[in-house]
Design a protein around this nucleic acid. Structure first.
Lengths: 259, 259
DNA sequence: ATCAGTCGTGCGTTATACGACCAAAAGTCA
DNA sequence: TGACTTTTGGTCGTATAACGCACGACTGAT
């Protein structure tokens, strides 16, 4: 794709390892306790292979088994922890999020694209606010119907974007969810032109989402955004401006540099 | 070890997958940008194998390459995110930590054992406090010289504990770091008897650490603790009591159930 | 230009994945 | 409750893919 460093990566990639990661990822918020057969069904792999891979995860301590059901252990947090530490996430990125969340007055989140979803990978924390709306790190949002998602699409690889626009599921979360894929494509083009995305009530009724890219048109793989009651925001411009400020600061950390 | 569910796991574990995970884990806070040779040296694997595994990670989007150096991408956060969501971490565990941190007046953290270290996997967040002392999720502490570590040892599998007591590195972080392994073993036994650990100035000068187990003697794989200036704490009992309260609440979430 | 270090590749050996089979448990219906 | 069907987990042999080693090319210093 954008791998210009080594000519290309053909098939000197380890399918076994890739499958293992896929097995690990079969566990998400809706599937936290799975049987071997369920994992096999979710990943499309052979049950025998899934069994070996799952037992490997158990052996390494990343999964536990209780009878026939497997689940992940907190040890998987270590996999992310090394990245967080190595990139000074807690000391450099998190404070930026917290600061702008205070300024804006609503929870600020960073998301990246994964499959057909935008996934929260970081979020501001505010002592008072308890929890915004149940969306936390790891939450998945539809790319097509949210501000974060459309911002990711606007700055994403055109080939990938085309595929998502054509094939990604498009459930009508609300009465106002855009159902016309061509219309969504035009909306994404507009987002690209504007440099920011505002989407109202297409995913959660009465909620408007705001998002800008972290980095420039070809360099951005992550987006930052917030959401607030639709009624709140007569003028989105101040919010967008703040988000751009935050994005600029985050770019300077280098954590979200292109990959 | 404690796998009584299936008789035992012998060699129906996938070494390729295990190696891939090890490669992923070669990236920590002190090694965030590595060459193939460095990864090979850190893991002890062949360079060719490391190359395939790294390219696999790049292909999957979990790593990037810049010339000859590889580094992880924020996508690795997704691996943890699914666990966090699936176990309602953000909505159930995190508030407990935050609440008790306010009560106690210092940052509260959860750690698990990994290799010869205790690793932070969760931490309270306090808007005001900015950052406690540079220790964030992913931080590694020596098992032998910290309260969190000795608590993990006190409730850990005896065989594993013996190995750690005998073989784990024991640098003298401060002038007061216990250097006699037998004395540390006795201290760990005392911790097991007490049900809590207090360690003063053995890791950071002027800082006392406090820790209790999350779960009972055989069921605890995680510990919760805090640290504060040595001068603060004439009487550790109230702090320990609070930590026990927090541990009880966290046990009820089931997130840290034995594995 | 030399030299040390690193990366990429081809081939023989080793180990993994796949599919089928069997046993056992779970679910179903009378 | 009983026997039935269905599903699940574990095992075994074989084709296939990955590993490890060695060699050659390249990069970047000194």
């Amino acid at each position: 794709m954008q791998d210009h460093d080594p000519p290309i990566t053909e098939r000197d990639i380890s399918t076994t390892f890739a499958k293992g990661v896929a097995v690990l990822r079969a566990f998400d918020d809706t599937h936290s306790h799975l049987t071997l057969s369920e994992v096999a069904a979710l990943t499309g792999f052979d049950r025998a292979a899934v069994r070996r891979l799952m037992l490997t995860l158990v052996h390494l301590g990343y999964a536990r088994r209780d009878g026939r059901r497997f689940s992940l252990t907190p040890r998987v947090l270590i996999l992310a922890g090394s990245f967080l530490r190595g990139n000074r996430f807690g000391t450099h990125v998190q404070p930026i999020l917290n600061r702008y969340a205070s300024l804006i007055g609503s929870t600020v989140s960073i998301a990246i694209a994964d499959d057909h979803s935008a996934v929260y990978v970081a979020q501001s924390v505010m002592q008072e606010h308890e929890i915004s709306f149940g969306f936390t790190i790891g939450s998945r949002l539809p790319l097509l119907s949210t501000a974060l998602g459309r911002m990711l699409l606007a700055y994403g690889d055109p080939e990938w974007v085309g595929g998502v626009l054509r094939r990604a599921p498009l459930p009508a979360h609300t009465a106002r969810t855009l159902q016309d894929r061509d219309a969504i494509a035009r909306a994404v083009a507009q987002v690209r032109a504007d440099g920011h995305a505002v989407v109202t009530a297409e995913f959660e009724p009465g909620i408007s989402g705001y998002a800008v890219a972290i980095g420039g048109l070809g360099a951005a793989r992550a987006v930052i955004g917030t959401s607030r009651p639709e009624s709140d925001a007569a003028d989105p411009a101040p919010i967008i401006a703040r988000l751009h400020d935050a994005a600029r600061e985050i770019v300077q950390t280098g954590v979200f540099d292109g990959w």
